[in-house]
């Protein structure tokens, strides 16, 4: 027996459903399937969504990211997965390696990827669990992103305290979560999937005070958006 049952089935024919799908749909999202996941792909106005990410704040669902939890004795983990400084995540081949504690880290891979990585790590004696379905993820992008996050999260997001690559476990709207700074004006919130609707509402409410709006995955994935992040 194994823990493979943790990994969601995600295909075009049998898509996995994002924990944020209901909340996003209630907020006017158009749901579509991307990389085997049903989630908010747009909110009906691509131009406005792009503008929000560029000039105020846009937030969107990225729960389809593959999330692997790596646990091992610190020495073994480093040997298998490389050395990381606590507080700093490293981006390599499109995946973020995020140190949570000595002997514990999260890897964030693009949706649908990470399977080979899991096998390699397990062979190296690292305990790996697929937590893709356990954690919801919201990207917050734009000049107002830090101020938006300040409405519900006490982590210090000043660039000198949390530069790009900065990774902090902490309270996200009073729930246990993590914050990753993906770029100068781009953050990724990670939180328990069961809190998805609640966290989405908190982010939406906070962003609204700063003129922000929800955006679809298509807006977040646009080349200029990726570059800005």
């Amino acid at each position: 027996m194994s823990v493979a049952f943790l990994r969601p089935v995600a295909s075009a024919d049998a898509p996995a459903r994002s924990p944020l799908a209901d909340a996003a749909a209630a907020g006017g999202a158009r749901l579509g399937v991307r990389d085997g996941w049903e989630l908010a792909t747009s909110f009906g106005d691509a131009e406005a969504e792009a503008e929000a990410c560029a000039s105020s704040v846009g937030f969107g669902d990225r729960s389809s990211l593959t999330k692997l939890e790596l646990q091992a004795a610190p020495g073994r983990l480093e040997a298998a997965a490389g050395r990381l400084e606590l507080g700093t995540a490293v981006l390599e081949d499109g995946a973020w390696a995020c140190p949570v504690a000595p002997g514990l880290r999260l890897e964030l891979h693009p949706a649908g990827r990470g399977g080979e990585r899991l096998e390699v790590l397990e062979e190296a004696g690292v305990n790996v669990l697929d937590l893709t379905a356990s954690l919801g993820a919201i990207s917050v992008r734009g000049p107002g992103a830090a101020e938006t996050i300040a409405r519900f999260c006490a982590i210090d997001t000043r660039p000198k305290s949390l530069p790009p690559g900065g990774f902090r476990p902490g309270s996200v709207a009073r729930t246990p979560g993590h914050l990753l700074r993906e770029g100068e004006d781009g953050f990724l919130l990670l939180f328990g999937a069961a809190y998805a609707e609640y966290v989405w509402q908190q982010v939406a409410s906070a962003a609204a005070t700063l003129g922000g709006r929800p955006v679809g995955l298509d807006a977040l994935s646009a080349p200029e958006a990726v570059h800005d992040a």
Binding site: P8, A14, R17
Partner: peptide, 8 residues
């Protein structure tokens, strides 16, 4: 089962 497949 995984949360993401529960509704189906």
């Amino acid at each position: 089962c995984p949360l993401a497949n529960a509704r189906a």
